[in-house]
Protein backbone atom coordinates (compact mmCIF):
# COMPACT_ATOMS: atom_id res chain seq x y z
CA UNK A 1 0.00 0.00 0.00
CA UNK A 2 1.08 3.56 -0.56
CA UNK A 3 2.30 5.43 2.45
CA UNK A 4 -0.15 8.26 1.90
CA UNK A 5 -3.22 7.04 0.11
CA UNK A 6 -5.07 10.21 1.00
CA UNK A 7 -2.88 12.09 -1.44
CA UNK A 8 -4.34 10.04 -4.24
CA UNK A 9 -7.88 9.63 -3.09
CA UNK A 10 -9.33 12.90 -2.06
CA UNK A 11 -12.66 13.70 -0.53
CA UNK A 12 -14.44 16.44 -2.38
CA UNK A 13 -16.25 19.34 -0.79
CA UNK A 14 -19.94 18.71 -0.24
CA UNK A 15 -20.61 21.99 -2.03
CA UNK A 16 -19.67 20.34 -5.31
CA UNK A 17 -22.56 17.91 -5.06
CA UNK A 18 -25.92 18.52 -6.60
CA UNK A 19 -27.57 16.33 -4.01
CA UNK A 20 -26.64 17.23 -0.48
CA UNK A 21 -28.52 17.20 2.77
CA UNK A 22 -30.68 20.28 3.16
CA UNK A 23 -29.12 20.69 6.59
CA UNK A 24 -25.86 21.38 4.81
CA UNK A 25 -23.99 18.36 6.03
CA UNK A 26 -23.22 15.09 4.38
CA UNK A 27 -21.93 14.24 0.95
CA UNK A 28 -20.07 11.59 -0.91
CA UNK A 29 -16.49 11.01 -1.83
CA UNK A 30 -15.17 12.18 -5.11
CA UNK A 31 -11.90 10.89 -6.35
CA UNK A 32 -8.63 12.48 -7.13
CA UNK A 33 -6.71 12.71 -10.35
CA UNK A 34 -4.68 9.61 -11.25
CA UNK A 35 -1.57 9.07 -9.18
CA UNK A 36 1.90 10.08 -10.25
CA UNK A 37 3.63 7.28 -8.38
CA UNK A 38 4.12 3.91 -10.06
CA UNK A 39 1.41 1.46 -9.04
CA UNK A 40 1.89 -2.25 -9.05
CA UNK A 41 3.08 -2.77 -12.61
CA UNK A 42 2.52 -6.53 -12.71
CA UNK A 43 -1.04 -6.16 -11.44
CA UNK A 44 -1.77 -3.50 -14.00
CA UNK A 45 -0.19 -5.48 -16.83
CA UNK A 46 -2.36 -8.50 -16.05
CA UNK A 47 -5.47 -6.29 -16.01
CA UNK A 48 -4.41 -4.77 -19.34
CA UNK A 49 -3.88 -8.24 -20.83
CA UNK A 50 -7.36 -9.32 -19.68
CA UNK A 51 -8.94 -6.21 -21.16
CA UNK A 52 -7.10 -6.77 -24.45
CA UNK A 53 -8.36 -10.34 -24.55
CA UNK A 54 -11.93 -9.20 -23.92
CA UNK A 55 -11.64 -6.66 -26.73
CA UNK A 56 -10.26 -9.37 -29.01
CA UNK A 57 -13.29 -11.54 -28.23
CA UNK A 58 -15.66 -8.72 -29.15
CA UNK A 59 -13.72 -7.99 -32.32
CA UNK A 60 -13.80 -11.66 -33.30
CA UNK A 61 -17.55 -11.89 -32.68
CA UNK A 62 -18.20 -8.71 -34.65
CA UNK A 63 -16.00 -9.98 -37.46
CA UNK A 64 -18.01 -13.21 -37.54
CA UNK A 65 -21.28 -11.25 -37.40
CA UNK A 66 -20.16 -9.18 -40.37
CA UNK A 67 -19.35 -12.34 -42.31
CA UNK A 68 -22.04 -14.85 -41.35
CA UNK A 69 -20.99 -17.20 -44.16
CA UNK A 70 -23.06 -20.12 -45.33
CA UNK A 71 -26.14 -19.76 -47.50
CA UNK A 72 -28.82 -21.41 -45.35
CA UNK A 73 -31.14 -18.93 -43.63
CA UNK A 74 -28.70 -16.21 -44.57
CA UNK A 75 -31.35 -13.50 -44.40
CA UNK A 76 -32.45 -14.38 -40.88
CA UNK A 77 -28.92 -14.73 -39.66
CA UNK A 78 -28.03 -11.47 -41.35
CA UNK A 79 -30.76 -9.65 -39.43
CA UNK A 80 -29.75 -11.27 -36.16
CA UNK A 81 -26.11 -10.51 -36.89
CA UNK A 82 -26.92 -6.85 -37.50
CA UNK A 83 -28.88 -6.68 -34.25
CA UNK A 84 -26.00 -8.36 -32.43
CA UNK A 85 -23.49 -5.90 -33.85
CA UNK A 86 -25.68 -2.95 -32.85
CA UNK A 87 -25.84 -4.27 -29.27
CA UNK A 88 -22.12 -5.04 -29.05
CA UNK A 89 -20.58 -1.88 -30.50
CA UNK A 90 -21.29 0.36 -27.46
CA UNK A 91 -19.89 -2.26 -25.08
CA UNK A 92 -16.77 -2.69 -27.22
CA UNK A 93 -16.30 1.09 -27.08
CA UNK A 94 -16.49 0.92 -23.26
CA UNK A 95 -13.84 -1.80 -23.19
CA UNK A 96 -11.58 0.36 -25.33
CA UNK A 97 -12.09 3.17 -22.80
CA UNK A 98 -11.21 0.74 -19.98
CA UNK A 99 -8.02 -0.25 -21.78
CA UNK A 100 -7.03 3.38 -22.34
CA UNK A 101 -7.46 4.19 -18.64
CA UNK A 102 -5.56 1.11 -17.52
CA UNK A 103 -2.71 1.97 -19.88
CA UNK A 104 -2.66 5.54 -18.62
CA UNK A 105 -1.94 4.22 -15.11
CA UNK A 106 1.03 2.20 -16.28
CA UNK A 107 4.16 3.96 -15.11
CA UNK A 108 7.21 1.99 -16.16
CA UNK A 109 10.89 2.53 -15.42
CA UNK A 110 12.78 4.64 -17.93
CA UNK A 111 14.07 2.58 -20.84
CA UNK A 112 11.62 -0.29 -20.36
CA UNK A 113 8.97 -0.97 -22.95
CA UNK A 114 5.50 -0.13 -21.63
CA UNK A 115 3.94 -2.60 -24.03
CA UNK A 116 4.93 -6.08 -22.88
CA UNK A 117 4.33 -8.10 -25.99
CA UNK A 118 3.63 -5.55 -28.65
CA UNK A 119 0.24 -6.11 -30.16
CA UNK A 120 -2.93 -7.24 -28.48
CA UNK A 121 -3.64 -10.98 -28.34
CA UNK A 122 -5.68 -12.48 -31.15
CA UNK A 123 -8.15 -14.10 -28.77
CA UNK A 124 -9.95 -17.39 -29.19
CA UNK A 125 -12.20 -18.07 -32.15
CA UNK A 126 -15.75 -16.86 -31.49
CA UNK A 127 -18.97 -18.72 -32.26
CA UNK A 128 -20.69 -17.29 -35.34
CA UNK A 129 -24.32 -17.97 -34.32
CA UNK A 130 -25.53 -14.74 -32.63
CA UNK A 131 -26.95 -16.45 -29.55
CA UNK A 132 -23.84 -18.51 -28.98
CA UNK A 133 -21.64 -15.48 -29.61
CA UNK A 134 -23.55 -13.45 -27.02
CA UNK A 135 -23.24 -16.31 -24.51
CA UNK A 136 -19.50 -16.51 -25.25
CA UNK A 137 -19.11 -12.80 -24.48
CA UNK A 138 -21.35 -13.03 -21.43
CA UNK A 139 -19.05 -15.65 -19.90
CA UNK A 140 -16.00 -13.54 -20.78
CA UNK A 141 -17.50 -10.43 -19.14
CA UNK A 142 -18.28 -12.33 -15.95
CA UNK A 143 -14.80 -13.79 -15.80
CA UNK A 144 -13.16 -10.42 -16.41
CA UNK A 145 -15.31 -8.67 -13.80
CA UNK A 146 -14.46 -11.35 -11.22
CA UNK A 147 -10.74 -11.24 -12.05
CA UNK A 148 -10.66 -7.48 -11.39
CA UNK A 149 -12.30 -7.97 -7.98
CA UNK A 150 -9.69 -10.63 -7.20
CA UNK A 151 -6.98 -8.01 -7.81
CA UNK A 152 -8.43 -5.50 -5.33
CA UNK A 153 -6.57 -6.62 -2.18
CA UNK A 154 -3.16 -6.11 -3.82
CA UNK A 155 -3.89 -2.86 -5.62
CA UNK A 156 -2.97 0.64 -4.46
CA UNK A 157 -6.04 2.67 -3.46
CA UNK A 158 -6.53 4.65 -6.64
CA UNK A 159 -5.96 1.64 -8.88
CA UNK A 160 -8.37 -0.42 -6.76
CA UNK A 161 -11.03 2.19 -7.44
CA UNK A 162 -10.42 1.99 -11.18
CA UNK A 163 -10.53 -1.83 -11.06
CA UNK A 164 -13.80 -1.76 -9.09
CA UNK A 165 -15.38 0.71 -11.51
CA UNK A 166 -14.33 -1.28 -14.59
CA UNK A 167 -15.52 -4.50 -12.93
CA UNK A 168 -18.91 -2.87 -12.29
CA UNK A 169 -19.08 -1.70 -15.90
CA UNK A 170 -18.38 -5.22 -17.11
CA UNK A 171 -21.06 -6.57 -14.76
CA UNK A 172 -23.59 -4.22 -16.39
CA UNK A 173 -22.81 -5.77 -19.77
CA UNK A 174 -24.13 -9.12 -18.58
CA UNK A 175 -27.85 -8.18 -18.53
CA UNK A 176 -27.42 -6.51 -21.93
CA UNK A 177 -26.06 -9.79 -23.29
CA UNK A 178 -28.86 -11.70 -21.53
CA UNK A 179 -31.33 -9.60 -23.50
CA UNK A 180 -29.47 -10.33 -26.73
CA UNK A 181 -29.56 -14.06 -25.99
CA UNK A 182 -33.30 -13.93 -25.22
CA UNK A 183 -34.05 -11.92 -28.36
CA UNK A 184 -32.05 -14.35 -30.45
CA UNK A 185 -33.91 -17.32 -29.01
CA UNK A 186 -37.24 -15.63 -29.67
CA UNK A 187 -36.29 -14.79 -33.25
CA UNK A 188 -35.22 -18.39 -33.88
CA UNK A 189 -38.62 -19.77 -32.87
Amino acid sequence: MAAHPTRRVVLAAAAALPLAGASGCGGVNVLAAPPRAAPDVALLRSAIADEQLLIARYVNVLHGAGNPGGSTSAARRGGAAAALAAALEPMLAEHRAHLAQLRSRLVVPAGASPWPSGRAPAGPAAPTAPGAAAAFLRAAEQAAAAALLDRLPRAPASLAQLFASISASEATHVPVLDTVILDTERAAR
Binding site: A33, P34, E94, Q101, A164, S167, A168, P175
Partner: peptide, 28 residues
Protein backbone atom coordinates in the same frame (compact mmCIF):
# COMPACT_ATOMS: atom_id res chain seq x y z
CA UNK B 1 -20.50 -0.25 -6.68
CA UNK B 2 -21.55 -3.11 -8.92
CA UNK B 3 -25.07 -3.22 -7.47
CA UNK B 4 -25.48 0.54 -7.95
CA UNK B 5 -24.09 0.32 -11.49
CA UNK B 6 -26.57 -2.44 -12.37
CA UNK B 7 -29.49 -0.40 -11.01
CA UNK B 8 -28.26 2.74 -12.79
CA UNK B 9 -27.90 0.88 -16.09
CA UNK B 10 -31.43 -0.51 -15.75
CA UNK B 11 -32.83 3.00 -15.21
CA UNK B 12 -30.64 4.60 -17.84
CA UNK B 13 -31.30 1.92 -20.42
CA UNK B 14 -27.63 1.92 -21.32
CA UNK B 15 -24.24 1.28 -19.75
CA UNK B 16 -21.34 3.57 -18.88
CA UNK B 17 -17.61 2.75 -18.91
CA UNK B 18 -16.71 3.98 -15.41
CA UNK B 19 -19.56 3.72 -12.90
CA UNK B 20 -18.97 5.98 -9.91
CA UNK B 21 -15.72 7.47 -11.19
CA UNK B 22 -15.96 11.20 -11.84
CA UNK B 23 -14.27 12.55 -14.95
CA UNK B 24 -11.65 14.20 -12.74
CA UNK B 25 -10.43 10.75 -11.70
CA UNK B 26 -9.87 9.68 -15.29
CA UNK B 27 -6.72 10.42 -17.22
CA UNK B 28 -6.86 12.04 -20.61
Amino acid sequence: VRAAALRAAAWRGSTVPFPGLPASALAA
